[in-house]
Amino acid sequence: MELIWERPEPRGRTAAPVDRRRIVATAVALADAEGLSGLSMRKVGAELQVSPMRLYGYVATKDELLDLMADAVYGEIAAALDDSPEWEEALLAIAVTTRDRALRHEWFVELIGGRPHLGPNALTVMEATAAALARALGPDGADRVMVALGVFNAYLVGAVRNEVSERRVSRESGAEKTQWQASVGAYLGRQLATGRYPTTERILHGKPQGDPAETFAEEVAVIVRGVTHTG
């Protein structure tokens, strides 16, 4: 089967100009507004003023459309990166930019972490990540690059998924969340007062919760130090 990345677009003159770029941009805008659950080929066609069947000439399935949408976000990530020779700066930039785009396109987290994305933009981001890790580990650590890449990506996917999920819950629950937090806070206070959880108590009563972006950067730094440790 010829993949979407290598399949040429249909040619021909039509009354309503359509191409994959416009289809993907329209689908991304719809998903930003309504989530993936609100996305359909019918809605994309309506926005472009063409029938859904016309779209299937450009993308064979909805899954192909989702692949193209994910790669469009990877394109935003790739465009924000530079050729920093400092591997630590490069890894932090990749992580921070991925988080930024995931918060901008919340549906993106539903498409990452499963089967690998192999579009040109996704491969560009993967290459930048692997290259930075390879520089960090040096020639003697070449056999560790794949493991380091897996750990780095696993943290990144998990972190952005959690943050997006928390944002969604905050928007949807409202007063229920406030009541839940109050009841949980009281319960947790009683449990900590038993003295059975001293480490947890020190953590919770230690550094106050800071800015999510700063916390994320601190966690990325810990992960980077761990996966690039050569001792």
Rank of each mutant, 00 (worst) to 15 (best):
L149A: 14
E110S: 14
E127D: 10
L111K: 13
P116F: 07
A148M: 09
A122T: 01
G138F: 02
A128G: 02
G150L: 13
D140W: 04
E106T: 15
D140N: 06
N121S: 10
T124F: 02
H117S: 06
A128H: 02
A136R: 00
A122S: 11
G141Q: 06
G141Y: 04
V147G: 08
V145W: 06
G138E: 03
V125K: 01
P116N: 05
A102G: 14
A142E: 15
L137I: 09
A136E: 02
D100L: 15
P116Y: 06
D143K: 04
A128E: 01
G119H: 08
A134H: 04
L133C: 06
L118R: 14
V147D: 14
P116G: 05
P120K: 02
R101G: 08
A130F: 04
E106S: 14
R135V: 00
A130D: 10
A128R: 11
G119Y: 09
R115C: 01
E106I: 06
R115W: 06
A128T: 02
R115L: 08
L103D: 09
A132L: 05
D143G: 05
A134S: 15
D143R: 10
M146L: 14
W107T: 10
A130R: 15
G138Q: 02
T124Q: 14
D140K: 11
A136L: 01
D143P: 00
D100E: 15
G119W: 08
A102T: 15
T124H: 11
G138M: 02
L123T: 05
L111H: 12
P139W: 03
L137W: 09
V125T: 01
G114L: 08
P116A: 13
R104D: 15
P116W: 06
D140G: 10
F108W: 15
A132F: 05
L123M: 14
A142Y: 01
H117K: 07
